[in-house]
Amino acid sequence: MLEINRLRAGYGEAEILKGISLTVKPGEIHGIMGPNGHGKSTMSKILIGHPAYAVTGGGVTFNGKNLLEMPPEKRALEGMFLAYQYPVEIPGVNNAEFLRMAYNEKRKHEKLEPVDPLDFDELLNAKMKFLGMDSRFKERAVNEGFSGGEKKKNEILQMALLEPKVAILDEIDSGLDIDALKVVAEGVNKLAGPGNSLMIITHYPRILQYIKPHHVHVLIRGKIVRSGGMDLAEELETTGYDSYLKEK
């Protein structure tokens, strides 16, 4: 589904990703772990086409197509999704209207008619209820004044509506208390299935107790230094990243 091949990228002169290779197959859940500042968010933003980063080498294919050549909105419509570590606030834009607009863009891409607003409202209510979100978040401006946890839930709400093929969740557990984390994890697990894949990015292994990955990778200094299964996550839970950081 997603094939990252020796990807090198960075900001201007600074190279952050130094040759990342990773293959994500349909139905797989990958955990990407590593300490802060080693390139996890950079990788996720490059995959969705953020213009601040320059790719300097390697490539990415998504369902056989060259992902890096697609504009960001095309990537989204084809099924790439990032739940941001730091979602932006958009004052003045009604959250429910934004969600419906995004939902309708996807329907348009699938050659479907725009959703009936009342039907959408019902759909939205159901998803929000499931995520334990108060319905007043419909009427608020997108992410404006949301707490950290509320922003994360709003990201997962978008994921639930857009049903992406590859969803990258960047530090989705930060800002969530344990109960909220369980709800969010349940929501994510419900969306996982044989046809779509997940990349769970985290520096803290806790979330992987709730969303069990098939594969775990350790990302240090812009490289994947080790890959394994769930046992690797458990190992990191006790040992931390110190041994990887010492290695040169």
Binding site: G49, H50, P51, E73, A76, L82
Partner: peptide, 13 residues
Amino acid sequence: DQIFYLKSRGIPE
């Protein structure tokens, strides 16, 4: 950044 956020949800520029 706001533009990009919307684009990354499939909304054209």
